[in-house]
Amino acid sequence: MAGYVVRRVVSMTLLLFLLTLTVFFLFNMMPADPARLTCGKACSPAIIEANRHHLELDIPPIEQYQRFVGGIFFGRTFSKDTPRPIECEAPCLGYSFLRNTEVLTLIARAAPVTFWLAIGGFLTWMLIGLSLGIVSALTRGRWVDRTIMGIALVGYSLPSFFIGLVLIFFVILDWNLLPFPQWTTPDKDLGRFLQTMILPWITIATLYAAFYMRLTRNQVLEVFGEDYIRTARAKGLPERVVVLKHALRAGLTPIVTAAGLDLAGLLGGAIITENIYSLPGLGSLSIGAVLASDLPVITGITLVTASLIIFANLVVDLLYAVVDPRVRVG
């Protein structure tokens, strides 16, 4: 077991290293000249050159990469030769000269929004997905099952932006049930927070719940076919206990795996949902950065998001190994 953990951690570290490398060089070849972008109206080649120096773009890419990675571990200083150098402490993901702010600060500012969006969406879809999935399995083949699976399929199919726009059209514009979304933190104004978040949660849940309904249904059906369930039933245990205690628990492993990865992916920002409901999360931050060609921010977000997923992969794998005795770890 210990050997397995060590191997997985080593491979994750390697992956993270590859990730920084890929992300850095992928974005380094973008032509939008960041030096030109910070230069403004009265711009001469000399100013661009100086800005390039200022932004440390005049050194070889390998060295830029070294400084970038160095910054993550030891911090770094930007604009060294100027009257006001910028100290970026470890972990330094870079500095956005466009917004005069450290990338990490920008990410930290946007992260709570995405966090609430992801957590709320996650709970909603797990609740709907698991319960309807079980109901569907229990009524297998009957109209309830078919209806649920039909809804699941449609929900799973629709593009998220279409769901979002339709919800806005009916709930907000046509029926005036909710005000327009306006982000606020739950501690500041809980009512407003819930009013803002309920549609984004539903949008996200519609996409994911459908998948979990199907997954849950399949798992439960599969487990029902196994001997120990038949035994439990034969023992005369109530159906409720059979379903919840035996069937669901055994079938839960792949669901947990998928849920972990999906949640991690979502924590990196839901670009479309955040865009539609103008939530200032990581997704909006990244879209803004793309539109402004703000490379340090794009690089930073990509790195954080991808790390989240890689890390979640590791956690899920380890959990899997612990929970499910069938997994060989030797």
Binding site: R36, L291, S293
Partner: peptide
């Protein structure tokens, strides 16, 4: 061209 980089791009003779 993305709004934020528009003027940066069109002031560049090559782009």
């Amino acid at each position: 061209i993305p709004g934020g980089s528009y003027y940066g791009t069109i002031f560049n003779d090559e782009q």
